[in-house]
């Protein structure tokens, strides 16, 4: 457990020290949300109806930006080889790295989301629900994203490929993330079941992501 903890802390330190990544993601999030009213027109009623969808999609795209970095630098400079010699199985190493990715990308984006919601006339009362849904749903982004990041380590044009591979995997998270909020807005209730499914998808990603990513990393370290 100590080793796992040390790896997460080191990844967090490196993320903050290399900087840039978080700023880029947050800035991109802001930009995408800010472009939406320009494209859709400034109708506040329309915007507040579309706000959950816009926020979720913008969040997915922003999180995608930093995904390639999850394994890339450690793979390129040989650190992953040394880490693989340590006491942790590769699956746990992936969990540590995806956790660090979530803490440095997913969580800050989630915390920014209600603020950006103000730009879209999102009802303030639904902000807690938005944050809850996103906190439950975003781990899936990091853990399913780990699969794409691991598969495209040695690929040409890996950024675009990563988006192609990973975005379809985000469909369930997107659908239930949005339905948690739209149910609320339409007063049809049922946010609870959406939140439960959202958590289930994240838990599922927590199992599938490490197994598939570790297999992909193993194949590439040969």
């Amino acid at each position: 457990m100590t080793a796992f903890f040390r790896l997460v802390v080191r990844d967090l330190e490196l993320a903050f020290r290399d900087g840039g990544a978080l700023g880029t993601a947050l800035g991109f999030f802001l930009m995408v949300v800010a472009m939406m009213p320009l494209g859709l027109g400034p109708d506040l009623n329309l915007l507040s109806k579309l706000a959950p969808g816009i926020l979720w999609i913008a969040l997915l795209l922003s999180a995608l930006l930093s995904l390639p970095r999850m394994f890339e630098s450690d793979f390129d400079d040989g650190a992953l080889e040394v880490i693989a010699m340590g006491p942790l199985p590769l699956e746990l190493i992936v969990i540590a790295k995806a956790t660090a990715h979530w803490l440095t990308t997913g969580l800050p984006l989630v915390l920014l989301a209600p603020v950006l919601g103000l730009l879209l006339n999102l009802d303030l009362a639904s902000a807690p629900l938005l944050v809850t849904a996103m906190i439950l749903g975003t781990p899936a982004i990091s853990f399913l994203g780990a699969i794409g990041a691991a598969l495209t380590l040695k690929a040409k044009r890996s950024g675009l490929l990563l988006a192609l591979l990973v975005l379809p995997l985000y469909v369930p998270t997107l659908i239930f993330g949005i339905s948690a909020l739209t149910n609320q807005i339409l007063n049809t209730g049922g946010a609870g079941s959406s939140l439960m499914i959202l958590s289930a998808v994240s838990l599922f990603a927590l199992v599938l992501g490490p197994i598939a990513s570790a297999a992909a990393l193993r194949a590439q370290m040969q």
């Binding site: 400079d77 080889e81 010699m85 006491p87």
Partner: peptide, 18 residues
């Protein structure tokens, strides 16, 4: 076996920001 080994490969595994 890898738990009993140190491996120093071609790459130095150094984080330049540390």
């Amino acid at each position: 076996i890898s738990d009993a080994c140190h491996y120093v490969g071609h790459l130095n595994a150094i984080k330049t920001s540390q």
